[in-house]
Write a protein that binds this DNA or RNA. Sequence first.
DNA 1: ATCCTTGTTAGGAATCATTCTTATATAGCA
DNA 2: TGCTATATAAGAATGATTCCTAACAAGGAT
Lengths: 162, 162
Amino acid sequence: MIISQNDIRTRFKAQGLKVTPQRAAIYKALAETTSHPTAEALFQQVAKDYPMISPNTVYYTLSTLKNVGLVKEVNYWHDRTRFDANVTPHHHLICLDCRAIFDIEDRSLNQIRQKAKIPKDFQVLSHQVEFYGYCSSCQKAQARQPSSSSRHSHIQSTRRKP
Amino acid sequence: MIISQNDIRTRFKAQGLKVTPQRAAIYKALAETTSHPTAEALFQQVAKDYPMISPNTVYYTLSTLKNVGLVKEVNYWHDRTRFDANVTPHHHLICLDCRAIFDIEDRSLNQIRQKAKIPKDFQVLSHQVEFYGYCSSCQKAQARQPSSSSRHSHIQSTRRKP
DNA sequence: ATCCTTGTTAGGAATCATTCTTATATAGCA
DNA sequence: TGCTATATAAGAATGATTCCTAACAAGGAT
Ligand SMILES: [Mn+2]
Ligand SMILES: [Mn+2]
Ligand SMILES: [Zn+2]
Ligand SMILES: [Zn+2]
């Protein structure tokens, strides 16, 4: 999903943010992927065009964008933090093997709050549904190699928490 | 909810785990609270009875118990990892202010998987619903002090990620 | 009851994602 | 074209978790 510099400019201005090349590049990279990348992955991506960018800038920028509501943090299944520029309410599929995160487009899941039996003294503002299982790639890989795992494409799982 | 040494022994044996005092104490502490504590909190609790216990043992033990299915990890809203000895499918309320985690007992939430529109090539094994908002304590605190936050009981949020 | 084997524990060091600090640079406005 | 508040970059610091290793101790076997 391509996003124009003008859209980026408009969104930043609307939030009172300066439009810098690094910030625009980070947001663009995040907005144009569906992979819910880590800060590190975004750093790698943006560094292709801005070799001098620092990881720090990516962290700072993501934090800023989060504060103004242009970005959401996602941190499922004890992985490092992952980010999403899709800030409309939606839900996720998480692969237990490769840890890929996929969007679900099912508006009906946005309604469960109305029916759920929630203690009346808790004020609910939002909710989130996550489905855990195996993506199609990982199912195939397991059929072939019914032992360990996580050896194919997607986002890679850089060790930590085996 | 009290749990007897015999229950603990039985559950450990059923999983082929040795029954050590430290391990039993950690599991007991977790099973008898509803607070979804951190490893650190469990360490503090167990250290009352076992002053020589190391944080390492708590991490190792929780990892072991998780591997055999006696404990679940919970890691909502970019906090450090929290643990739950309630391994039956259930869902959570998370306070955005004090970060307390409360169980929801609503079996109907266990059924949403059947109705949800999930890509047929993704094999779903489990799902999880989280509701975010403010607990009653925090609502009261905000009514009093409509500024910052997180200044009352519950589990405490030890800095990190303000 | 005692011995053995193997999983467990404790302590300390190491890892590494994230945050903090600070000096320099620059977007946006007068 | 300058001013000023923000943003960036580099490096150090933080802190939860993991790794490593030697000493311990359940629990089955003798
Ligand atoms: Mn998403
Ligand atoms: Mn729970
Ligand atoms: Zn997968
Ligand atoms: Zn609260």
